[in-house]
Each structure stands twice: as C-alpha cells, then as structure tokens.
Design a protein around this nucleic acid. Structure first.
Length: 220
DNA sequence: CCAACGATTAACT
DNA sequence: GTTAATCGTTGGT
C-alpha cells in the first residue's frame, strides 16, 4: 500500500538533533495519525523551534516538570500540552535524551483525511463549512484535526498510531523565518529570536500576530 | 493553599 | 482592533 507516494519514513536520527536544525527540515514533511477513526495526514507548512534551558520562551526553560517530562525524553516522540483552558498543541521532540528540545507544529496542509479532520474541527459549534486550507491553520487547529490531547503526550512517532514522512531525497525547502508567535513579556523572553519557520505562499500558514500582551507599559 | 496566566481561537465592535 | 471562553500548571505563601 502506498499511503504517501514519493515519501518515505523519516529515521529517528532525523529528530535527534538540535531543534534549530530540525525545524526547517520539517517543512514539507508529513505528520500522520492513523487510529480507529481513520487516517489524517498533514504536510507541515509552519513550525517553531524551542530550545529548552537556553530558551526563555520554552516551557522547559525552568527545568523538568510533570507537564514537560516528555520533552526531556528521546527524540521522535510527541509533547502535547494543554493551554488557555481549552486548546492543545503538538510538539515533535528533538535532540538527545536530557535535552528538552522540540518543534511546535503550527500549521499544515491536510493531504489525507480532510473529512475526518473537518468532523473533528466541527465538534466545536461553527457555522459555515470549513475550507480545507483552514483545517490545520494554527497549533490548536492542528491538534484538533489529529484529535490529539494530553493522552497523546509521550506518544512515539515510530510503531504506533503516529508516523512522520519526508519526500524521498528530502532536503530543506526554501523557507522564511521570523519571530515566534504568542511569546509575551519583557525582553529576554525569547521573542527576539527568529525561530519560526514557514513555507512562503502556503494558504495554511497562520497570519502573523505580534506577541500579544505588553501594550506600552508606560512608567507612572 | 491559592492567585495568576498561558507556545490560542473565534467572535465581536 | 478588542475580548470572552476556560482550566491545568506553576510558583509563591
């Protein structure tokens, strides 16, 4: 069976490197979940790199906690977290064991399972039918399309419901970089680093919003 | 124990 | 451009 013609499974070693190196190479790769409900495949168009203890913007910056434990484990696993009281987001864990590196999957193009992804997105009330290019536009939308929750934290990309594919002979595609989205706080929070990577011209790439919060904090 | 807030989204003025 | 929704995690008392 040729699930994805022209693609081959990424080796685990692909992930066992610095997140800054892996992130741009993830673009164009395909994240797949095949469970009892069906198969959804998403071609990544936008990711962000997080660098653990050296990175003030990373969840793992202040060391290991129960929430972030999976980021400290082996590469090629999933770190899935819950935030804003309602949303989940998926990271692909990179680096060596003990290095809490990861790449946040921000957006992608649904290659397989658009109907299933749409049903999952429609689980939340909404009006008009969702266009394909909006199914996985934004980290929480990616997680919804894949039905990922905290139950999937620590899941392996090899040998389970999940898999990750790269184009045969893959090399990093032409891409752009810029500040990561949603990091807020005084300077020193990591927002100044251009660690967001995306494929230009892709409809699924989320619109850039300058880091929320911090309106002019004028001194009294 | 408890208060503050977040790697967001959708809806609204 | 602004804001409600909604709750687990974190860090301080």
């Amino acid at each position: 069976m040729v699930l994805l013609p022209g693609y081959e499974p990424a080796p685990r070693d692909f992930f066992a490197r610095d997140s800054l190196v892996v992130a741009p190479e993830l673009l164009g790769g395909v994240l797949v979940r095949a469970d009892a409900d069906g198969t959804v495949a998403i071609r990544l168009t936008e990711v962000e790199a997080y660098g653990g203890e050296r990175d003030p913007g990373a969840h793992a910056f202040r060391g290991r906690t129960a929430r972030t434990a999976s980021m400290f484990g082996a590469a090629g696993h999933i770190y899935c977290y819950f935030t804003y009281g309602m949303h989940h987001a998926i990271n692909l864990v990179t680096g060596q064991v003990g290095q809490p590196y990861g790449c946040l999957v921000r957006s992608g193009e649904v290659l397989l399972g658009a109907d299933l992804a749409r049903r999952r997105r429609l689980a939340k009330p909404r009006v008009s039918p969702l266009p394909d290019w909006q199914l996985a536009r934004g980290p929480a939308c990616v997680a919804q399309s894949l039905a990922a929750t905290r139950d999937n934290d620590g899941d392996d990309l090899f040998g389970g419901e999940w898999s990750f594919w790269l184009p045969v002979g893959h090399h990093a595609l032409p891409h752009r970089t810029g500040p990561r989205v949603g990091l807020s706080g005084p300077s020193g929070d990591g927002a100044e680093y251009p660690w967001r990577y995306w494929l230009p011209g892709e409809a699924s790439v989320s619109a850039y919003k300058p880091a929320a919060g911090k309106r002019a904090a004028v001194a009294p």
